[in-house]
Design a protein around this nucleic acid. Structure first.
Length: 978
RNA sequence: GCUCCCGUGGUGGAACAGGUAGACACGCAGGACUUAAAAUCCUGUAGCUUCACGGCUGUACCGGUUCGAUUCCGGUCGGGAGUACCA
């Protein structure tokens, strides 16, 4: 009987699908467990071996938890809106939905071959109108809300309107735009409809507002901060510039503090929490107003109010509102030139040379609030318009950037905190004693900060303030392939659609490009794409992160047509117990999904305020590229080991020439003469253990048919480098190929065996024979005949057995196996229970690589013991089934079971089998090992001490001296300190 | 620059709470079976030293705490990830 994995895996995958084995129950008395993978964007390239890594881990946990008696929710879906499908559409004219559907089908086919236990009935696709109907609905809820600081939660906008009508906005404590004028209830009632709408817009959590955004001209759209890396777009790498635009945004800043606090109670990795903390960027400081003759005050934010007497100038951003107003006629030209210059610099240039100091004097002066001195106002692009107030009080003595600026423009650098050497550099440390600072003199920095805030508040020129680095999230995208924003305009006033008008379905367009006058592609929609036939819809669409910000909830009730999900179901499933995905989503998706969860919780739609209790970032699997070395001008390929030997020094190159000439006399003289060697990527699929398969290589490309090889012992060795897995590098390994050659179970085990889940590592197929051999060994434990007298009769197990065989009538029967009903020995029970214990611990702490090792140890021991007893093998199968579901299911049925192994209870550890009769203690003196003593394992610590001290060898070593201390670590060691 | 993570054999990696470092696997070497190959099985495999028993050195480097450190603390070097004029 052979282990025919291809036939077995296909058959069981079909069985599970037909029987809906992995259906999650909505009404269950069992405890729930929700394991979720970050759903993929279905790209055209299909899956490579790196993609399923996290899915395999989550699948193991899901299957394990089922064995442990949990009702498991383990769904999968697709984040199917996105840029690549749209760009493909622009090039080919093919509708993105067509490409997306094809890609999804391909993904599904590949996923199915790995034997995942997903409940496919719950599949969601963000581009499905029945899904994005509810994305739009949630958008409307956010649009119809404002953030009440007093209650510290979102509230319906109707409550704000009621307050305006009653009392105006005087006592409203909201997170909103910061330059809203105060109005009374009478004022409010006088406002026109448009004015009312504008005012409300400044309070809404989803709002249309003017803001500096990341504009990407090449993509023709705005991008969120997390979609921009190093000044270029994350997708495509196009330059990005700052642009003032009217855009839909989300007031995520309202949730900054709660997003920060929430991190404390969730089990995510420290590094991930750290990057979210950094992204949110809370800083405590003081807001402070400087008076300026004839103009509104200039407000600054500082974390160092203690250095107030060290201020020698004030710097404002080039985009600051007051730039034009305060500039004196004499400076007007210089300022204008500077402002235009900085505006034209792309964000990337601006970031690239952060060390170049630039700025210009406005000619204006502010008055120092305490010393009453005149302080010059400068413009500098090191001050960012978007952070704080866009203005800083410059303290060159104690801030590096101010220091550089002052040095460059020869401005005074007063010292107000003792401890540094200001002739060399700024002293920015927050320690030291204040000097030259009037009422702050002699205080420590900490005390001075407190005192300065007191004085500032006393003078009513400012107050203590917390600032966040986090900016509101731009929500509109000038793209086609996204959710339409459910807004229409009547006389330029935006209105949200009603629930019964959803979904607002994405209209057909003739082209997927912006219109000639720069409107987003949706503006190309036919004339009749209008609300009630006359009102224009919003033409921008939602960003990629909209659909993924709540999908974990939709899985709980994916087909609900009347709500985004039923509250009862959401209360049962709560939130994700284990979430697995890449760390690249740390400051994007993972922040937005927390934001929406908190919002939905505020509004009472859901009962949880964090989406995931535990999160694991799986590492990236890199590609392992192979190279061949061609002699330019010839068809000769030289093996890497020869290249390595002969290319370092010039004289060895001469030797190489001679060598080539000796072995290949017919070589083209010109090629030999120049001896240029070109390194070329070679498809890793025609390389085995870094040895080139020459025949396949010749067939790989047409021009290689007459390739000749120079190598040693007929082995052409390829060069190796670790790179990102990509088609162009010919280093993509497809999971399909691995499954075909070794089986899906082997693929699953090997991906886990490769190393810790969270670590990035290169894919290397070389080691796979280890796990493949392990499964064969396991099979032989059941099917071989090491003990039996008569070999098992070979049943009709031809590999071509048709799939129609229903697994409830097993392919063959127990007779074909060689498993006995004999009583297991103590040693066999120990092997089994040791394994159960280790595996349980391994899974509970997500250490999948060690658990694979532990299975191998177990099977090795059982093979050595020639153990083929049912009482040992059956529990082992259950333990292994989360990892290698197909082979275990097959053997389980061959053992005569009718039910799927999926529903079996996970075996419990019986500790009594693990207790040894005797235990060997290493005895050390002062930490140095000397010898071992065997003692009964049941002894208590004092008994061990007594026994050890009674031994002749110990006494001999002590030579009559009394030990100072005896340290006994039960089951480990006895250390005697002399 | 800042923040976080990590440095263990030829390789991937184990060592979970400070207690016999190198489990397990790959690779390599030798052997068995075979006409041969594949497959399978057995033995060895950190370094130095010893005929051998054994001994010594070893977890990037330097130092500390401890009877005992891969593990804890301080410093240095090297690698990776995130982030970047955030006042």
């Amino acid at each position: 009987m052979e282990y025919n994995f291809l036939e077995i895996e296909k058959r069981w995958q079909k069985f599970w699908a037909d029987h809906k084995t992995f259906k999650a129950e909505d009404n269950s008395v069992k405890p729930k467990y929700y394991v979720l993978d970050m759903f993929p964007y279905p790209s055209g390239a299909g899956l490579h071996v790196g993609h399923p890594l996290g899915y395999i881990a989550s699948d193991i946990v899901a299957r394990y938890k089922r064995h442990k008696g949990f009702n498991v929710l383990h769904p999968m879906g697709y984040d199917s809106f996105g840029l690549p499908a749209e760009q493909y559409a622009i090039q080919t004219g093919q509708h993105p939905s067509v490409t997306t559907t094809q890609n999804i089908a391909r993904y599904r086919e590949q996923l199915d071959k790995i034997g995942f236990s997903f409940d496919w009935d719950r599949e969601v696709k963000t581009s499905d109108p029945q899904y994005y109907k509810w994305t739009q609905w949630i958008f409307i809820q956010i649009f119809n809300s404002w953030y009440d600081k007093s209650a510290d939660k979102a509230q319906p906008i109707s409550s704000l309107i009621a307050e305006f009508e009653k009392n105006g906005n005087g006592s409203v404590n909201a997170v909103c735009d910061d330059d809203i004028k105060t109005f009374s209830s009478e004022d409010w009632k006088q406002f026109s409809e448009k004015e009312k709408s504008d005012v409300l817009m400044r309070y809404r959590l989803a709002y249309l507002g003017e803001a500096y955004v990341n504009w990407c001209p090449a993509l023709g759209t705005v991008l969120a901060n997390d979609e921009v890396k190093d000044g270029v777009s994350e997708r495509g790498g196009h330059p990005v510039e700052r642009k003032l635009m009217k855009q839909w945004s989300m007031r995520i800043t309202a949730y900054a503090q709660r997003l920060l606090d929430g991190l404390e109670k969730i089990d995510w990795t420290e590094s991930l929490k750290e990057s979210q903390r950094y992204w949110i960027g809370r800083s405590e400081g003081t807001s402070l107003r400087f008076k300026i003759q004839g103009h509104p005050d200039i407000e600054v934010f500082t974390t160092r109010p203690d250095t107030i007497f060290g201020v020698s100038f004030v710097t404002i951003a080039p985009e600051h509102d007051l730039v034009n107003a305060i500039t004196t006629p004499a400076q007007k030209q210089a300022v204008e030139e500077y402002v235009i210059k900085t505006k034209n610099r792309s964000e990337r240039e601006r970031q690239a040379d952060v060390n170049t100091v630039s700025g210009v004097f406005t000619g204006a002066y502010v008055i120092h609030p305490f010393s009453a001195q005149q302080i010059p106002v400068w413009i500098g692009d090191y001050v960012l318009a978007g952070y704080g107030t866009g203005a800083v009080m410059a303290v060159p003595g104690h801030d590096e950037r101010d220091y550089k600026f002052a040095k460059h423009f020869n401005l005074p650098i007063p010292e107000v905190v003792a401890g540094g050497d200001l002739s060399k550099e700024a002293y920015a440390a927050k320690e030291g004693i204040l000097i030259n600072s009037d009422f702050l003199n002699g205080l420590s920095v900490k005390e001075a900060i407190k005192k300065a805030i007191e004085k500032i508040e006393e003078k009513k020129i400012g107050h203590g303030k917390v600032n966040f680095r986090l900016r509101d999230a731009v929500f509109g995208r000038q793209r086609y392939w996204g959710e339409p924003i459910p807004i229409y305009y009547v006389n330029d006033i935006p209105h949200a659609l009603n629930e019964n008008e959803l979904p607002l379905v994405l209209p057909e367009v003739d082209k997927y490009l912006p219109t000639e006058d720069g409107e987003p592609p949706l503006a190309r929609a036919a004339e009749n794409w209008k609300k009630d036939g006359k009102y224009n819809y919003e033409a921008s669409t939602m960003p990629g992160w909209a659909g993924s910000s709540w999908y974990f909830l939709r899985y709980m009730d994916p087909h609900n047509g009347s709500e985004f999900a039923d509250r009862k179901l959401m209360d049962y499933w709560q939130n994700i117990d284990l979430y697995i995905g890449g760390s690249e989503h740390a400051t994007g998706h993972l922040l937005y999904v927390r934001f929406w969860t908190k919002f939905l919780n505020d509004m009472g739609f859901i009962g949880v305020d964090e989406p995931a209790k535990k999160l694991i970032n799986q590492g990236m699997i890199q590609g392992r590229s192979n190279f061949v070395y061609s002699l330019v001008g010839s068809s000769l390929f030289i093996s890497y080991d020869i290249i390595k030997k002969y290319t370092d020094a010039p004289h060895s190159r001469e030797e190489l020439k001679k060598l080539i000439q000796a072995r290949f006399p017919d070589i083209e003289p010109a090629a030999l003469d120049s001896l240029r060697i070109q390194k070329l990527h070679v498809d890793v699929n025609i390389v085995e253990n870094d040895v080139l398969q020459k025949e396949n290589f010749k067939k790989w490309r047409d021009d290689l048919g007459n390739a000749t090889f120079m190598d040693e012992e007929d082995k052409y060795i390829c060069g190796v480098e670790i790179e990102k897995m990509s088609k162009s590098k010919y280093n993509v390994v497809s999971p399909d190929d691995i499954s075909e050659r070794f089986g899906a179970d082997t693929l699953r085990l090997y991906e886990m065996f490769l190393g810790p889940l969270e670590q990035s590592k290169p894919w290397n197929t070389n080691g796979i024979t280890g796990v493949s051999g392990f499964l064969k060994k396991l099979w032989r434990l059941f099917a071989s005949t090491p003990l039996s007298v008569t070999p098992s009769t070979p049943l009709s197990v031809t590999p071509s057995t048709p799939l129609s065989v229903t697994p409830s009538t097993p392919l063959s029967n127990t007779a074909s196996l060689n498993v006995t009903e004999a009583e297991p020995t103590k040693a066999e029970l120990k092997t089994l229970h040791k394994t159960i214990k280790k595996i349980t611990e391994d899974i509970e702490r997500f250490s999948f690589n060690t658990s694979v090792s532990n299975f191998m140890i177990c099977v090795n021991e059982l093979t050595d013991a020639k153990c083929n007893k049912r009482a040992i093998l059956e529990p082992l199968l259950i333990c292994l089934s989360p990892y290698a579901p197909h082979i275990t299911e097959e053997l389980w049925h061959l053992l005569g079971h009718k039910e799927s192994i999926v529903f079996e209870k996970f075996p419990e550890v019986n500790e009594s089998y693990l207790v040894d009769d005797a235990f060997t203690y290493p005895i050390s003196f002062n930490g140095k090992m000397r010898f071992n003593i065997e003692l009964p394992a049941t002894l208590t610590v004092p008994e061990i001490e007594k026994e050890v001290m009674g031994r002749e060898e110990v006494q001999k070593y002590l030579e009559g001296k009394t030990p100072k201390k005896i340290i006994i670590v039960p089951k480990k060691i006895v250390n005697i300190v002399v």
